[in-house]
Design a binder for these strands. Structure first.
Length: 280
DNA sequence: GATATCAAGCGTCAGGTCGG
DNA sequence: CCGACCTGACGCTTGATATC
């Protein structure tokens, strides 16, 4: 809607308000041209309030799908979506699945096994399994692998207990000398000491009781903020994906209703011709 | 080739909603 | 009531296309 409100911005309304226009179109067609409210009646403030109270796209689309057969539901989990490879969905109940900035999926199973899935690969071949040496019940206060991210040099990083960083070398080209020789297409991993500045999106878990100095408190606050931003980043992505799906659904519904409308008009014309034959 | 414009997407913030 | 989640709004970047 804000492209109506902000005259200086001429962005395409797809992302921000196109769905609102589509909703109107669907409603207008569905009402078969009866007493459609003019757009100008509702001022922008009211519209903003109304839209801000609208339930989520998932709910709306699911309600739509219950009304109209054939309308796909938005799944609670994006298991069959293009984003998640099917091999992850069929895994044996992993405790956590993370997606890196490069599209890789890292699943941490309950047994401590880390499985990494490349988005380009299909089937189980894309999975590489790492078994953590401390698999099983972690000791109290242990730091668990929390997140993976791509650092500036294009490597995949995640963290393991002991404040060490496991780094996946890119295309195994940079395998260091202290590591076992890389074999075939298997990615190589190396243990590095953590850098002072965490890469963007990387969050390290720490036991709350271990905070002492103001510096540590500040670090904790920074960590919490990073975690919150990361979650919100993912939530925004997911929200936009749902919105696109919702808009697609509305567009297809518009098409169906337009066809129905056309058919009904034709039927009406036919009936008119039958009921009022020409006198000539 | 340089510049302008547009479309699409992203990250972040703020505020609302919802479930425990 | 509180924390987690959802989503509109805003500003920014990037790639494509048009215009000069």
């Amino acid at each position: 809607m804000w492209w109506h409100q902000h005259n200086l911005c001429f962005r395409h309304p797809v992302e921000e308000d196109y769905s609102g226009d589509l909703e109107k179109k669907v409603a207008t067609i569905a009402e078969t041209d009866e007493s459609a409210e003019s757009e100008g009646v509702i001022d922008s403030h009211k519209r903003r309030e109304i839209l801000s109270r609208r339930p989520s796209y998932r709910k709306i689309l699911n309600e739509l799908s219950s009304d109209v057969p054939g309308v796909p539901k938005i799944e609670e989990e994006k298991s069959e979506e293009e984003g998640t490879p099917p091999n992850i969905a069929t895994m044996a109940v992993p405790t956590s699945i993370y997606q890196t900035s490069t599209g890789q999926y890292i699943a941490i199973a309950q047994g401590g096994t880390i499985q990494i899935s490349n988005p380009g690969s299909d089937g189980v071949q894309g999975l590489q399994a790492l078994t953590m040496t401390n698999s099983g019940a972690p000791p109290p206060g242990a730091t668990i692998v929390q997140y993976a991210a791509q650092s500036a040099d294009g490597t995949q990083q995640f963290f393991v207990p002991g404040s060490q960083v496991v780094v996946q070398d890119e295309e195994t080209e940079l395998a260091p000398s202290h590591m076992a020789a890389a074999t075939g297409d298997m990615p190589t991993y190396q243990i590095r000491a953590p850098t002072t500045a965490l890469p963007q999106g990387v969050v390290m878990a720490a036991s709350p009781g271990s905070l002492h100095s103001p510096q540590q408190l500040a670090e904790e606050a920074t960590r919490k903020r990073e975690l919150r931003l990361m979650k919100n980043r993912e939530a925004a992505k997911e929200c936009r994906r749902r919105k696109k799906e919702y808009v697609k659904c509305l567009e297809s519904r518009v098409a169906v209703l337009e066809v129905q409308n056309k058919k009904l008009i034709e039927e009406l014309e036919t009936l008119k011709d039958i009921c009022s034959p020409k006198t000539d």
